[in-house]
Design a protein around this nucleic acid. Sequence first.
DNA 1: AGTTAAAATGACAACGCTGTCAATGTTCTA
DNA 2: TAGAACATTGACAGCGTTGTCATTTTAACT
Lengths: 343, 343
Amino acid sequence: MKVTINDVAKLAGVSMKTVSRVINKEPSVRKKTYDIVMDAVNTLNYQPNLAARNLAGTSSFTVGLVYDNPNAYYVIDMQNGVLSRCKEEGYELVIHPCNYLDGNMEEDFKTMIKRSRLAGLVLTPPLSEQNSIIEMLDEMGIHYVRVLSGRPTEEDQDTCIYVNDYAAAYEITSHLLSLGHKNIGFLCGDKEHKSTTERLEGYQAALKDHSISMNDKLIYEGQYSFESGVEGAKALLGENNPNNITALLGGNDEMAAGALFASRLMGIEIPQQLSITGFEDSPFSRQTWPKLTTAHQANDVISQHAARLLFRKTRGARNQDKDIITTFTPSLVVRESSGPTSA
Amino acid sequence: MKVTINDVAKLAGVSMKTVSRVINKEPSVRKKTYDIVMDAVNTLNYQPNLAARNLAGTSSFTVGLVYDNPNAYYVIDMQNGVLSRCKEEGYELVIHPCNYLDGNMEEDFKTMIKRSRLAGLVLTPPLSEQNSIIEMLDEMGIHYVRVLSGRPTEEDQDTCIYVNDYAAAYEITSHLLSLGHKNIGFLCGDKEHKSTTERLEGYQAALKDHSISMNDKLIYEGQYSFESGVEGAKALLGENNPNNITALLGGNDEMAAGALFASRLMGIEIPQQLSITGFEDSPFSRQTWPKLTTAHQANDVISQHAARLLFRKTRGARNQDKDIITTFTPSLVVRESSGPTSA
DNA sequence: AGTTAAAATGACAACGCTGTCAATGTTCTA
DNA sequence: TAGAACATTGACAGCGTTGTCATTTTAACT
């Protein structure tokens, strides 16, 4: 029933070690031998045992995905992306949700790493921005790849995948400007997050390029949550909309949905009286009324590339994956929540 | 740097095997010895190596979570529940998203199982309902626990966790009835799913108990998706609401949100002209306008118990966890989407 | 063909743990 | 208090791989 490397070796008439070489795609195996072994592998439907591989080898076949993002859609997409690569490469995925508020995160990490020696980690924002964590990992000598909000100017192209929120925010803002909006509010996330400042800067740059002066009163800092979107919209639009805002940029889809909700409460018609945009294009940007104009972020693709980058690092020479994209720019998706100014 | 069982044994002045006994909580270790060993474990901060354990032992320390549910919130909750138990018990979790449409699911399963021998699987609906899968697992001799929609009448209390959708649907329907609604529509999911038929029966039972006759025209079969919720609401309410429906039961929160969306399109005020209810209490039932009345389903708790049940099976005598709940009934949460009939 | 270097393969000991079974200690019985 | 019965511990092999290093085969030269 259970097929081991020995069974394959016997059937192929070679040594155990040669089979090992074949399944690890090591060089210096004659083509002919390779084929014979692969035939045996296929006939027996052999699957190398992960535990044995992890135990015996210097490198491991387990990668970890670490996240502290409360957004379920985001997490699932990241998981699926990494998982799809893992499957192809014969790796196993260990997921590690965590909470930056928990003081013992460091301990937690160490435990995880001791228990199953890891090939490396994929870190997702906002946790991937925490320098203390990066330092710890460096100290421990753990490989990792970070998914970060940022612009391709930087050069850690070996350990980072960038999501260019700046450019995306610029594009969304430009979209609103082209619809005639002048007073555009921004419901941004927590400023601790890099994505927030990136998106904010993109927004500001677009305004500047259209010669529109900045107004801090149009910016509300929330926490990327639905609730804070509600609060933000109320704060910016309340008391008869003193700043005459005609469009609202949501820091993400949830905040935009919150703004939509608040608009309903205040009797504001969307998009006739107010345009609202989201960010991320999570499924629920299509499940609001009206559907949200947003920036599509291909999280599954992003995480696939993160995994590929990790594998490239991990396996050094054996794997020189060249087509890894390290910068992604979310792209504008126009739906019903944005429209021309009525004025 | 790397602490092994041998280091602990040396420090404690006992044999490797005794340390093994302690960390596995085997009986027949003298209290005094146990304490000495545990002291050594703590001083060295020892973490048993999972790969070695899996390789050497007859039982494994890896459990799998299998799902084919597209609902991200649901999946995350299930993951977190199982994960929290795994952490406590020193197990590792391997997640396995899959697609029942894929023909090669069986192969996929086998591969996963061969690669890392598993202690067992937690199966979630609707995949947990597929008899072919259960048979396959039985054949392969793999332990599993199924999370299923159903009522506690059945007796597989050793391998199943039931979610009593029947009772929950009964409760929601009763809620609507008590608000004065007589013509209550039902936007149900795919009838292939057990949850659909359970919810449908609960709805029908409630109507019956209130002496309201059934009307098939009030039932629309969708696919538990937002889109099908939109379609269903249009179908039932279109052409001037021929059946004079005043309340709509959504098969889940997404369908309810779809119905909400459709109502907007049709100019129907919620809840003044129409009450709409969801099912599951996923985060987005709080992110619609108005917020959804729904049935709260504690998915994380459910999956924790599923994991506990699996561990009990797996470890036989060593673990006689007695407080495992095997039946959960989602409970009514009243929000703004339901109200009294205007009539 | 004879030599040498390089490429391809194999033998065997790890990896860190658990299972088996034998060897001790301990407690109880008569 | 001897002897049996049981509780506690330890020695050692083996889980299925990979790393190391020795050996054989092939290719590349004179």
